[in-house]
Amino acid sequence: MIIRLQFFPQTLIPLHSTLSPVKNPNRSPNCTKQSQLLDGFRNSLSPHPNTPISDSGLRFRQKLLYIENLKVNSSKALHKNPNFRSAPLDTVKSVEKCLCSMGIQRSALGRILDMHPQLLTSDPYNDLYPVFDFLFNEVHIPFPDIQKSIIRCPRLLLCSVDDQLRPTFYFLKKLGFAGPHAITCQNTLLLVSSVEDTLVPKLEYLQNLGFSYKEVVKMVVRSPGLLTFSIEKNFQPKVEYFLDEMKGDLAELKRFPQYFSFSLEGKIKPRHRLLAEHGFSLPLPEMLKVSDGEFNLRLIEMRLQLADERYLE
């Protein structure tokens, strides 16, 4: 017996028609609910056809979120470092890895990058490692102290070794910062100062007060902070008060150049006036180096001693 295969013509489905899934009448409610959840999850992954997601926009937002997690102000970074907008995230990560390799903690890292957003797009091998190499091999800062130098003065990382750091280092060595007075992590911030515009004018100002060059050198080597003070905001007002109000002698400043490191309004004036009210005076170290409690106790002792002397008279 011959069985003939009969081919039925295919039913054409118009392109504009909508296909609906076949509903299974035996499907359980749980399966239906799971299917709805799965469909919702798929829809959440699929971008809306009218709002396509830009890969570059997503990467940009990831980069901003990354530096915000480092406690870096992203708005400030974009304003102060326009190159950051187009820099890949890997650039930021390479800077972070470089600084962390020198012992800088993540908390300090964020503060440094927030202070100087230019560092976000720096090249570790061309910009950062040469600074570390200079501090270690030429200035002879011990490796564990390099991170202390950077934390105290992040501007070191923005300076050219050849144009700024090395010339200033040679000048300071010649001035007397060598041997027992060599540059340490405590005063590496001097290296970012311009020799012609900052260091030399301060030395000349002190000489113009009446100190010899040798005396000035001895003062700044003993107290390197003198070279970080402003002439207009620090030296001039403190010298004027010392000479005009305290009737001081420049010889005392030679012995105690740390005078310039104390606040004029916060400590020098108040303590001098308290002493002057009772007709007392103290050498600068005794007046300024002690705490407020010790100073007040010393003042009370002087007043009691004066009262005893008057009583005995």
Rank of each mutant, 00 (worst) to 15 (best):
V192D: 06
S193Y: 14
S193R: 14
S193G: 01
D197N: 13
L199D: 04
L199S: 05
L199M: 03
L199G: 02
V200T: 08
V200E: 05
P201E: 08
P201R: 06
L203E: 03
E204H: 06
E204G: 01
Y205A: 12
L206I: 01
L206P: 05
L206C: 01
N208M: 06
N208E: 11
S212A: 11
Y213P: 02
Y213C: 05
K214V: 08
E215C: 06
E215K: 08
E215Y: 11
E215S: 12
V216I: 05
V217Y: 02
V217W: 02
K218Q: 15
M219F: 07
M219S: 02
R222W: 03
R222F: 05
P224F: 00
G225I: 12
L226G: 05
L226Q: 12
L226E: 11
L227N: 05
T228Y: 02
T228L: 15
F229E: 03
S230I: 06
S230E: 04
I231Y: 07
I231D: 05
K233I: 00
K233D: 15
K233V: 01
N234W: 08
N234G: 09
N234M: 01
F235L: 12
Q236L: 15
P237V: 12
V239M: 14
V239E: 10
V239R: 05
E240F: 04
Y241I: 03
Y241P: 04
F242C: 12
F242K: 11
L243R: 10
L243M: 12
L243V: 10
E245T: 13
M246H: 07
M246C: 06
K247C: 04
D249A: 07
L250T: 08
L253A: 04
L253D: 01
R255S: 13
F256Q: 07
